[in-house]
Design a protein around this nucleic acid. Structure first.
Length: 269
DNA sequence: ATGCTAACCTGCGCGC
DNA sequence: TGCGCGCAGGTTAGCA
């Protein structure tokens, strides 16, 4: 599930309950994620005081007095705060007591990770990340400059983390629809003006999704339900064969860069 | 360098 | 009801 808005919502949701608190009763039940949870995770994290919880790209950075954790939720990961007496669910891989609550990392597909920030692996993951989509460093001029000489489909281009972070499969389709750009168009065959529009739509759609996800923060405490943004009306994603909300022509779908992609043949060129 | 594919895993929904 | 198949929000490794 996690696209950038969900990671941001997670960070904002858990931060107030973690910051200033001591981590105790740290337990790892299943270390084999995308990369193994370090063997000293329990021992080294136990009794640490949480200092901050931040998001970078789709990574969560949890800082304590003496160390720093980098976590990615992969395709199916989530952090939830629950009452410590709540029975463990299948695929609850890590539990950390935080005051009166317990933080649990849950990840059925195990594509996520929990790493020490200073590890070679974590540094490798973080070092080539492009600008944050909601920052001023990300704009149409940046996309235009970086796309010269690139022949790949624009959808694959904006999903490349070295270009811009946090644009996942859902919001790539959505932002291209909103900017009237065909997802298959070669990245270097799009004008500066159209990239200006695309950058603006990426910011807009992500900001809206974060605002909508932010309405369900309490879900992180009682551990129920999914963030609300996912219920928002999507213009094209997953609407294969349904009428375009703009022109009523059926929404098309095809695989681009190995990912299913949705678009309107009439509205997107 | 660029760009494409396979791979990592489990769960779910669908057709039979 | 059960079973097999295809597909799923991400990202890296490896190969042309």
């Amino acid at each position: 599930m996690p696209e950038l808005p969900e990671v941001e919502t997670t960070a904002r949701g858990i931060a107030p309950f973690l910051i200033g608190q001591q981590f105790t009763h740290v337990r790892v039940h299943q270390p084999s994620l995308r990369w193994p949870i370090p063997s000293d995770f329990e021992q080294r994290l136990n009794n640490e005081i949480c200092v901050s919880v931040e998001r970078r790209a789709k990574y969560l950075i949890i800082e304590t007095t003496n160390t720093q954790i980098v976590s990615h939720l992969g395709m199916s990961g989530s952090f939830r705060l629950v009452d410590p007496t709540t029975p463990l669910k299948k695929h609850d891989h890590v539990q950390i007591r935080v005051g009166d609550l317990e933080l649990r990392y849950h990840d059925p597909r195990r594509f996520g990770c929990l790493l020490w920030c200073e590890s070679d692996r974590a540094q490798q993951l973080l070092q080539h990340l492009g600008p944050e989509p909601l920052s001023d460093a990300f704009n149409g001029a940046w996309l235009f400059a970086r796309s010269r000489g690139r022949h790949l489909a624009v959808k694959s281009f904006i999903m490349t983390n070295a270009i811009v972070v946090g644009v996942g499969n859902i919001y790539a389709s959505e932002s291209l629809f909103l900017s009237g750009i065909h997802p298959q168009r070669a990245a270097n065959r799009i004008s500066a003006v159209r990239y200006e529009r695309l950058a603006a739509e990426i910011k807009e759609v992500l900001a809206r999704a974060i605002a909508s996800g932010g309405t369900t923060l309490r879900d992180f405490v009682n551990g129920q339900g999914e963030p609300g943004y996912f219920q928002q009306t999507l213009a094209v994603y997953g609407r294969d064969g349904e009428p375009c909300r703009h022109c009523a022509q059926p929404i098309q779908s095809r695989v681009i860069g190995g990912r299913n992609s949705y678009y309107c043949l009439t509205c997107q060129r």
